[in-house]
Simulated assay, not measured.
Amino acid sequence: MNFENLKTEVKTILSAENLSRDEKLKNLCQFLTDNIDYYNWVGFYFANHEAKTLHLGPYVGAETDHTVIPFGKGICGQVAESNANFVVPDVAAQDNYIACSFTVKSEIVVPLFVNGINIGQIDIDSHVIDPFTEKDERFLEFVNEQVAKLF
């Protein structure tokens, strides 16, 4: 996977005029799902710091019951507290994992910072065990840097 080739399109999607922020994010999720074969569910969660909860934003993939996640719970909730990327090569080996579907084998979550504050994250589930590399992390950090410009 050559992530460099995808960066220009990420910028194009996020700079589209006459679309709401949520529409741009949904289009971005669709683009990532369509172009990276092991990205099977792509979505954004946004933080409510007062309530210490994450709230599901735009996403592409199977429906999820996890529309609100408390800080600290599951992979996403842990990233809300740690402010660090979290790569889970095999979700079955993770104690604090919120099962979304039996088809999910691995997950990567990268925090989204605006002015140094973790306002949310991009969350990606894969049906493959251990597909995520450091290149995925760097690419998703780039994606979130571009997304942050929308806020």
Rank of each mutant, 00 (worst) to 15 (best):
N115V: 00
T33G: 15
L112R: 02
V143Q: 02
D22V: 04
A99T: 14
C100M: 08
A80M: 08
E50C: 09
F71A: 09
D125V: 06
G72C: 11
S101W: 09
I36K: 03
A92I: 08
V128T: 14
N27C: 10
F113Q: 02
K105Y: 14
D123L: 02
N5Y: 15
E107W: 06
A62D: 11
N40T: 10
V114F: 08
I129R: 06
L32F: 04
I129Y: 07
Q146I: 07
I122K: 01
G77W: 00
I117C: 05
V104W: 15
F151R: 00
T67K: 10
H66R: 09
M1E: 08
N5V: 11
I98F: 01
Q121D: 12
T53M: 08
Y39T: 07
F102L: 14
V110G: 03
N35S: 14
C29H: 03
P111F: 09
T33E: 13
F44Q: 05
N96T: 08
V91S: 10
S126N: 04
W41H: 04
A47N: 14
E137I: 10
F139R: 02
E81M: 13
L150W: 05
A93P: 07
E4F: 08
L56I: 14
G77S: 01
V60G: 09
T133D: 07
Y59Q: 06
L112T: 09
A51Y: 02
N83L: 04
F113E: 04
S126G: 08
L28H: 11
K105E: 15
I36A: 06
G43T: 03
T67V: 13
F142E: 02
I122S: 02
E81K: 11
L25P: 01
A62M: 13
N144K: 00
V147L: 04
E141Q: 06
S82A: 09
G120C: 09
A93Q: 14
N27Q: 12
D34W: 00
Q121H: 05
F3E: 03
I36M: 06
S82C: 05
K52M: 10
L14F: 10
G61S: 05
D95R: 06
D22Y: 11
A99C: 15
G72E: 12
V10S: 01
N115L: 03
K11W: 03
F44H: 06
Y39N: 07
C29S: 15
A148T: 05
A16H: 13
A93Y: 01
K11V: 12
F102D: 15
H55S: 13
Q121Y: 06
A80R: 02
